[in-house]
Amino acid sequence: MRWLREQGLTLAFTVLLLGALAGQAVSGLAQVNEQAADAGLAMMSMAQYLTSSSFAVDVAENWQSEYLQFLLYIVLTVWLLQRGSPESKPLDSAGRESDEKQKVGQYAAPGAAAWAKVGGWRRSVYSHSLGVVMGVAFLGSWSAQFVAGRSAYNSEQIQDLQAPAGWLEYAKAPDFWNRTLQNWQSEFLAVASMVVFSIYLRERGSPESKPVGEPHGSTGIEG
């Protein structure tokens, strides 16, 4: 029970992820089969749909933009500040900060990760591990979107009696960039909204908000 309470955030979002994926699979299959019926083509089973490029590209295009959002947020907030926002560091803390403040090497806390206590490349790697993993996840899911997107696009091309697109052609295709940019813009909007809204608005008890009574001008203070 205590374990459940301490892992609640991860567990809740994992359940929400699986529920949303299941819903996407059911509604996506229904849509694909509706179109197949209209075109006089064969229906798909759920297993076929889950391994199809259609499902893969729809999942990947959303994943890549989420990882890009977090990557940019993690990296840009090292240097970029926002007066009054709990999402920003204090206005005098821009940059990578001192070893003492970052608690590395001789300043590491007793329970710190081993690579935070040592110097050299291991500390460098660990110091950027969050950004690197987000970056790899972004590039991986964007690549997946590209590969699956081309296959799904070519499937449509063939149904429309048109020649399939090669790799280079698809890299320049509106389909690829429209899928990419329509997701990016929504992520950037969400981040900008969060940064600005959290200056003036509060959610009592949330670490993403300043304490309710905190002045609008206070920066880098979380509830």
């Binding site: 889950l50 391994t51 199809s52 499902f55 994943w63 997946a144």
Partner: peptide, 22 residues
């Protein structure tokens, strides 16, 4: 034509949820 066998598998692995398309 360029084979997409490996790249399509890469896509699925990168996604982490989609079963291998075979």
């Amino acid at each position: 034509c360029v084979s997409t066998t490996l790249t399509s598998r890469y896509a699925v692995v990168a996604l982490g949820v989609v079963l291998l398309s075979g």
